[in-house]
Amino acid sequence: MNRFSVQIHGWLLVLPAAVLLAAFTHYPAVATLLHSFYSTPKANRPAVWVGLENYRAMTQDPVFWQVLGNNLWFALGTIPASIALAMLMATWVNGKLHGRAFLRLAYFTPTILPMIAVANIWLFFYTPTYGLLEQITVDLLGLPSHNWLGTPSTVLACLIVVTVWKEAGFFMIFYLAALQAIPPALAEAAAIEGASRWTYFRRVVFPLLMPTTLFVLVNAVINSFRLVDHIIVMTRGGPDNASSLLLYYIYDVAFKFWDSSYASALTIVLLAILASAAIMQFAFLEKRTHYQ
């Protein structure tokens, strides 16, 4: 092939995907930024340039700060717990425990179910009086009845539990792959040195899992800002926005109050958070390719 046809062929092959990516990823990202500087168009009044007005309104919007705070707690609640559980699950599934196949099935099943279906099941689980949780806490343990999803102080924790339950099995897979790649000679060497199982895990396995942990971490961060399906089913952000997360708030502002400009400004905050995760990821991908 001559050089000219390499150029033409290369571009022609990439073109269809590039056009769609530009139309539904790059264009909307840029347009979001532009629209965040305009007012929301109304029936008799087109959008006008308002500069940073939407961002000024954001800093004075108590709901925005509450939602951002919720999202940070949500991230802090879901990320370390799901990563630790995933590591534990992978260690167990990788070992020679009885019923390994069942264990793997049990841990992984939540991953393939739709979040929306899972949320319905958990909604039932948390239901006051009839739900399984109340049956255990009230009927079996004799604790006072508690409206788990209806109380601002417990609702976010309930959602965190659902998310950890859904995600841990997914992350387990990556740890499982990493564990299987650890040469058995290392365990033998550790045994000769008289290391305990815990020391072996802490000093040998854990450091070797670090690249996987970084990869999982980035994914967990992204998910904690991307997953809102369960909120729509279980709480609709309530009570009093106690369980609202950033993307859910954007959805509310854009498609319930139809304030698309303010929603654009909120989206820019979300994109900035995701971009930071992206920078982490790129730095990390760079490192990975050196391994190969």
Binding site: A29, T32, H35, L247, I250, A263, T267, L271, A275
Partner: peptide
């Protein structure tokens, strides 16, 4: 990173 999931408004 910037999935269509979050670009719902545009």
């Amino acid at each position: 990173m910037i999935m269509p999931d979050v670009l719902i408004v545009e």
